[in-house]
Amino acid sequence: MQNATNAAVSCDTALSENLKQAKALVRHLEAGDIDQADLVINELCVSRENGIFQDLGKLTRELHETINDIGSEARLQDIMHNEMPDAKHNLNHVIELTEDAANQTLTAIENSSPLLDNLSERATYLQRLLQGHMKKLTKNNELSFIEEELEGFLDKVNTDIKHINKDMNTILMAQGYQDLSGQIIQRVSKMVQDVEHNLIAILKVNSYSSNDNKVTDDSKNRTGYGPAVPGIKNDDVMNSQDDVDDLLSTLGF
């Protein structure tokens, strides 16, 4: 509320100042005093430019603060260092799992298909054999029921194999899901990678402008960075024992 009042007051001041300048401009122009008129116009321009520069400065400061906030956000650090790489790994694992499952299914189909073909061929062969020879043997009516049973069975074998082959074909074609879902997952994985790169870029901007919020690598903190290297600017590295002691004293030592 206070800010709004202040803004209104400063706006009023700027307006009355502008009005004064405008009246002066008209006066100079009416008097034919071009030099004075030019001076007023320049003043007006400068005041306008100052406003723009002030706004730009404010925007820059806000952007800078926002970037700092993003960089120090622990949740974001966690997402970038752990969850993003995990997400890519998980997605790749899904592709591997579906690929394994699809390949196992395809192998089963490839193994079974020739067995079915063979069964079908044998059944057809037996049918022909039955028609050619069994008729002679089964003149004895006591055995004719076997012939009928056999013929019925062989017919059924052939029709059933046709159905099974059709279903096997459906199973085969359904494995195409692995290709399609895999392509989609690859795209999501690529997007995760792009987001990760962009985040790193934002955090790098932040680490150049603010040493307080420098991105630290947890695993590196654990395993160590090795001795400080001269020429490599690192404001996080203490330069002397005094600096170390100073730091420790601020921590209550």
């Binding site: 690929e99 699809a102 390949n103 189909i109 490839e110 074909n169 074609m173 494995q175 290709d179």
Partner: peptide, 17 residues
């Protein structure tokens, strides 16, 4: 030609058929 081995197998099976 396909980068997914699954799809190559499917197409190969169909062509064999």
């Amino acid at each position: 030609v396909d980068d997914f081995s699954t799809m190559r197998r499917i197409v190969k099976n169909l062509l064999t058929e």
